[in-house]
Amino acid sequence: MAAEQAKIDPMHQFTIEPLFGSADWELAGVNIAFTNSALWMAIAAFALWAFVVGGMKRQVVPGRWQMAVESATGFIDDMLAANVGKAGRKYVPYIFSLFMFILFANLLGLLPLGVVGLHPFTFTSHFTVTGVLAILSFSIVLIVGFARHGLHFFSLFVPHGTPWPMIPVIAPIEFISFMVRPFSLALRLFVAMMAGHVLLEVLSSFVISGINAGPVYGVLIAIPSLALMVGIVALEVLVSAIQAYVFALLTSLYINDAENLH
């Protein structure tokens, strides 16, 4: 990496590197190298576990931590109750895991660990990851839909009240919009996270280049860029939460389609 110090590559932060010499690990013939991406998945999972463990005291009068955990589960529970109804309760574990895992991944990826020489990695900025999560959600919708409604689930492509001559036109459009769902889920999260991190990286390169170019550039470019960065970081924290929320909300809306077929 020493060679790359000369020019700042905003995309370098997304590079996946095998850790602990695990580059050649294989399972059933496929590579399963333990990468920095996998490490941050482990950290996110552990942080989420630690967060929820703090809320397991089961006190009748909750402390602050227990209150925070109960707010999180209550938030997911309310969202599913509002979007799916009573049947939504059984999806709370999945939606909670999804929402909190994405939220922790997004927020951990924003940690300013570069200051102490570590490299935070936002694995939600990789579409291989968001794609798997989207396919999981989409599979649940398909499985629940066909298990509950059988072949009648195909009537999802014919919105309620469609005049029958319009069905040949409407149904393909509905089918396409249905099939686009996993892609839109995956790409939305991936693009939002990547764009934010690239923007921060570009602005920080402005700060460094501005300072290196001399005092006049430092004042004119570096300071405004730094001020903008502070604002963008705050925005990115917001985006982290919003994207996790959008992923969970859309998943629960899709589950609603499967549970309560119009």
Partner: peptide
């Protein structure tokens, strides 16, 4: 070169989160 490891480790860790936290702990909190 990386998609297999990405998918594998995501399934491992998200699976852990789902079964340990989501299935194991969230219902008790609720």
């Amino acid at each position: 070169e990386t998609y297999t490891s990405q998918i594998f480790w995501l399934l491992v860790f998200f699976g852990l989160v789902f079964f340990v936290v989501g299935r194991g702990m969230v219902p008790r909190v609720m």
